[in-house]
């Protein structure tokens, strides 16, 4: 099992669009992917699950993967979130 934690940095948090991008990437992996905020754990391949975390700016998200290519999955998903935070800052202007 691999896990990594990241802090949400964009203003509007993990709203619909970031959640959609996350699910698309997560679904490409065979392994089980979980997303955890505080004591809530949801399936990383469910857009509704991710949205229901209501992860606002400043909150801490943990990605947990278990199974085939779990290292690669966590690394790619963390990078995706970092890119999302950067893109969102840009698109505000």
């Amino acid at each position: 099992m691999t896990e990594k934690t990241i802090q949400v940095q964009n203003i509007s948090g993990i709203h619909a669009r970031p959640a959609a991008r996350f699910v698309k990437l997560a679904s490409q992996f065979q392994c089980q992917i979980k997303l955890i905020k505080d004591n809530l754990e949801v399936d990383g391949k469910s857009i509704l699950g991710i949205m229901s975390l209501a992860a606002e700016k400043g909150s801490k998200l943990t990605i947990k993967a278990d199974g085939e290519k779990e290292l690669e999955a966590v690394e790619q998903l963390i990078n995706l979130l970092k890119n999302i935070f950067k893109d969102e800052e840009k698109s505000q202007i």
Binding site: A16, R17, A19, D43, S46, I47, L48
Partner: peptide, 16 residues
Amino acid sequence: REIFDAHLMILQDKVI
């Protein structure tokens, strides 16, 4: 529009 698209994805959410 983005909100509509999100609704579509919720309806198609495989986990749900």
